[in-house]
Amino acid sequence: MSRVPPPGAVLVLGEALIDLVPYEEGPQGVRRYAAEPGGAPVNVAVGLARLATPSWFAGSLGGDAFAGDLERVLTGAGVDLSLTSRSPLPTTLAVTDPRPDGNGYHFHLADTATFRISELAGRADEFAAVYAGGLAAVVPPAAAAVAATARAAARSCVLLVDPNVRTDRSIDPADGARLLRELCRHAHVVKVSDEDLAALWPDRGAEDACRELAAGGRLTLLTRGADGSVAFTPDGERVAVPAAPVTVVNTIGAGDAFAAAVLNRVVALAPPPGGPVRVTREQAADILAFAGRAAASVVASSGTALTAPVAAHP
């Protein structure tokens, strides 16, 4: 049974899946993989709960053992699952392919529970903020439910969009990019990486694309890994913050920890429902530094964002 969210609650839309992460090389050079509960929205929901922000996950869990692991991770962190859909279908698998320039992924998406997400447009106004993006925004049938809920959120609360672009042979790149661009147009806060911008606006430089997003009334946050992050405000300000010093052990989930910390800070600012998130230079710098520390806590740990501490507090 669904419950009434408390003040300051955040609704997180999207996929709950299993990351298969290589951890050692076995006989004849065959990799061995660890099954890690994940999906960017799950990481964000858990990160919010760890930062003491009421966190409600609106994805879909399947009928296999992997779904049980995901449920235990979410409820163990204190995430509310009363708006989570259930299905007898199996859980999506994401096979991680670590590369020198970042992580690649190969997805097993067909006929899985992960994208049987319910539309929640009628519940969006009960939340202080809604998070959307990633695979669920481009993979049917979830994409339609995410789009409808996000449009409602844009009118009634704060909508944060993290495009979190993923490529796979089963995802049409042109249609996926179109859906994510449309989602960004509804957002009050857009969190993007250089890679996201190159995929969505290949004809623009990263900062030009961010300025254009911000000029439309969006607080736009650009993450650049070891080069730190930059905020572009609706009032035309550009604020850059260096990355927190850290020894990199793992990068999986760092961007999700960043997004969770941003939501934690933005909700605390209590922006007007459905209106632009306007911040001072000092507030923008605080948001970036806080989120950078959260990302650094993941980068410094092995495993994923779900197994790392979220050490963002001053």
Rank of each mutant, 00 (worst) to 15 (best):
L200A: 11
L200T: 09
P202D: 07
E207M: 12
D208M: 12
E212R: 15
E212H: 14
L213E: 09
L213N: 10
A215M: 10
A215N: 13
L219C: 10
L219K: 12
T220R: 01
T220N: 01
T220Y: 03
T220W: 02
T220M: 03
T223M: 03
R224I: 00
D227Y: 08
G228C: 10
G228S: 11
A231M: 11
F232H: 13
F232M: 12
P234L: 08
G236R: 04
G236H: 06
A240H: 12
A240R: 12
V241K: 01
V241N: 05
A243L: 02
V246L: 09
T251G: 04
G253Q: 06
A254T: 02
A260K: 00
A261P: 09
V262M: 06
L263I: 04
N264D: 15
R265S: 13
V266K: 04
V267P: 04
V267E: 07
A270W: 05
P272A: 15
P272F: 14
P273A: 13
G274F: 12
P276K: 11
R278S: 14
R278N: 13
T280K: 07
T280G: 14
R281Y: 06
R281I: 03
Q283D: 10
A285C: 07
D286L: 11
D286W: 13
L288A: 03
G292Q: 01
V298P: 00
V298E: 00
S301R: 08
G303N: 10
L306A: 07
T307D: 03
P309C: 04
V310A: 04
